[in-house]
Amino acid sequence: PALAAQKNTALSTTQATTPYKDVTTYNNFYEFGTSKSDPSQNAGSLKTRPWTVVVEGEVHKPRTFGIDDLLKLAPMEERIYRHRCVEGWAMVVPWLGYSLSNLLKAVEPTGNAKYVEYITLLDPAEMPGQNDPILQWPYLEGLRMDEAMHPLTLLTFGLYGEVLPNQDGAPMRMVIPWKYGFKGGKSIVKIRLVEKQPVTSWMRAVPQWYGFYSNVNPDVSPQNWSQANERMIGQGGAFGGLFAPRIPTQLFNGYGAQVASLYQGMNLKKFF
């Protein structure tokens, strides 16, 4: 179904967007299986209505929102963001949503709120991949408070002018364009404001390779492979674009002008 939104050109890249087909068939969403094509094949079992999101923790006004309330909480914007996966590929996606700060302000964080954690639905019946103990379910991700309040951090409800397809994290997900894609928790049911830095799902699974910040950085590659460059998905060309060159990866995925100040004085090699 269509989802109306105002274009936010100020926060959008002018790069060509990745074809809808690739954005909706090449997904990492382990809740529906570990291969890239699994989510689009298996996510039909997810029921996105009714859907509620609990917002709690260090807030003055904890509240349970219905998904329709959330859709109306702030004006819906279209923002075209670069999306960089830690695996070394990238997309450009026209997301629909509004800054997470709108929701956080509505629940009035207390002075103790230092971090925000967001939790994906736990329901192995609707999310068959959760029968595989590959990660500790439910999926949990988090941000520091200033990151969460940053205008670029997008509470996302749609893409390409329509509501999110299930495999892309329906009915509501997080998109943080200067961080690796896995920071963008999908199908969120709970948002908690907390005092201590959360231990995220990937930090728990492979602590030596996945840190809390996970900012896109061509010079830091705690994982197995270099993060120096990236393959743009869906460029087309001979052999499906096989011989199109990779492009250099930019610090903070090219959003440094907006977000670098958040990390002033921090050793990005240590806080990866």
Binding site: K21, D22, T25, Y26, R231, F239, G240, L242
Partner: peptide
């Protein structure tokens, strides 16, 4: 036949 999938490199 351009059928190597979204990420032909991979």
């Amino acid at each position: 036949t351009n059928d190597l999938g979204p990420n032909p490199e991979q």
